[in-house]
């Protein structure tokens, strides 16, 4: 049986390379992710644009709060895949979620 997936491409101001602030993380989630995410899917791909190199803990917490409330910390690694050409971004999100 095929995995059910969806793919969400995030959009930010071109000049922004680093993300911070809990309310801003929530806002991006509410505006760009929430309308498109289906937690019953097996995998959701969330793609950050190439210019984004880092996300501070506050942004990550705001962005993932609703996701954690819905599927819990444990399922995040299986069900949410962050797509970015920057390893530093993927690593900052992972570290800030675990820590």
């Amino acid at each position: 049986m095929m995995n059910k997936t969806n793919h969400i491409k995030l959009v930010f101001d071109k000049a922004t390379t680093r993300l911070a602030y809990y309310p801003y993380g929530k806002e991006v989630y509410e505006q760009q992710v929430k309308p498109n995410i289906d937690f019953s899917n097996d995998i959701t791909y969330i793609e950050f644009p190439d210019q984004i190199v880092k996300a501070a803990s506050s942004f990550v917490q705001g962005f993932f709060e609703d996701i954690i409330s819905n599927i819990g910390y444990e399922a995040i690694e299986k069900k949410i895949v962050i797509l970015s050409k920057n390893e530093s971004l993927k690593s900052s999100i992972k570290t800030n979620l675990i820590f």
Binding site: D13, T16, R18, L19, A20, Y21, P23, Y24, A56, F59
Partner: peptide, 11 residues
């Protein structure tokens, strides 16, 4: 600054 503008400060 109670907004996305804090990302600018980070940069």
């Amino acid at each position: 600054y109670n907004s996305e503008k804090l990302s600018e400060i980070y940069d």
